[in-house]
């Protein structure tokens, strides 16, 4: 009945990407906020390390800046789905002959990538005028950078899937604030945005590295800082792929189940 092509998804991606470029004010606000937080944190860590471990400090400062640069990846806050559920216009979207889950994932991916790129350029430019001691470092080697890019694209996909799981649950509860607020906070902590995951005690490192939220930015940043050997690199990638598969399957299942019984609000 339905002829499946990839075109509608590409279009959804493009439209959301174009929309994202219209929010220049929001992007500017984001850059100022992230730059201020990055600067304050960089100085805080300078004081914490107090000249004790220059290599460790450099790594931590770089970690902080990368987290701030890619903040948009974690928080796309696409309120469109929520709005559509609350106003009932979701009914029209449901009529479209596309796979709903994939459609919304494409939109989210567009917001994440374009939003992050828009914020990244000024943030990198900023690095050139910052005092030397709070600048971020370059990737350790070209290999490290390639590993970082590969892992980052998987990480962004993982976050998009986490978002669909969250929105599936809001679809059910219709309460956007309480639950998604908690998830955002969990994400900020467990993705390493509030403090680098590398600074947590050794005993919980293994646990922290392989939980789903760490796949987003923590895994790529570790590669950026230190190119990984084949064994370690494969384990990291396998963890990302595994979580991506689990989250996608879970998200799809939840969406299928919830869309079947969705109540269209409003009138």
């Amino acid at each position: 009945m339905k002829k499946q092509t990839i075109r509608p998804y590409l279009t959804a991606f493009r439209i959301r990407a174009l929309l994202e470029t219209q929010y220049r004010g929001a992007a500017l606000g984001g850059v100022i906020t992230q730059a201020f937080f990055g600067l304050v944190l960089a100085y805080l860590y300078t004081a914490l390390y107090a000249g004790g471990d220059p290599a460790g400090l450099r790594d931590t400062v770089t970690y902080v800046w990368l987290q701030q640069m890619f903040f948009r990846v974690l928080m796309t806050s696409d309120s469109e789905l929520q709005n559509q559920i609350m106003t009932g216009s979701l009914a029209y979207t449901l009529c479209r002959p596309v796979d709903q889950h994939a459609y919304w994932v494409c939109r989210d991916l567009a917001a994440q990538w374009v939003g992050a790129l828009m914020r990244m350029v000024p943030m990198i430019a900023l690095q050139f005028i910052l005092p030397l001691e709070v600048r971020m470092a370059l990737p350790e080697s070209p290999a490290a950078f390639l590993q970082f890019l590969l892992s980052l694209s998987l990480g962004v996909a993982c976050v998009a899937q986490i978002h669909t799981v969250t929105s599936a649950i809001t679809m059910k509860t219709l309460d956007s604030r309480g639950f998604s607020g908690m998830i955002s906070l969990l994400m900020m902590i467990l993705a390493g945005n509030i403090i680098p995951l590398t600074l947590f005690p050794e005993t919980v490192q293994a646990l922290l590295r392989y939980q789903p939220f760490a796949q987003a930015l923590d895994a790529p940043i570790r590669m950026y800082q230190h190119a990984q050997g084949t064994a370690e690199f494969s384990i990291s990638l396998a963890a990302q792929l595994a979580w991506l598969a689990v989250l996608t399957a879970g998200g799809r299942a939840l969406w299928r189940q919830h869309l079947r019984s969705i109540t269209v609000q409003g009138g």
Binding site: L48, G181, L185, M188, I189, I194, I195, L199, F200, P201
Partner: peptide, 15 residues
């Protein structure tokens, strides 16, 4: 939420 900030300070001070 505030507990998250407290956790952050605790982890940093522990380290």
């Amino acid at each position: 939420m505030v507990g998250g900030d407290l956790l952050a300070v605790t982890v940093l001070m522990n380290r």
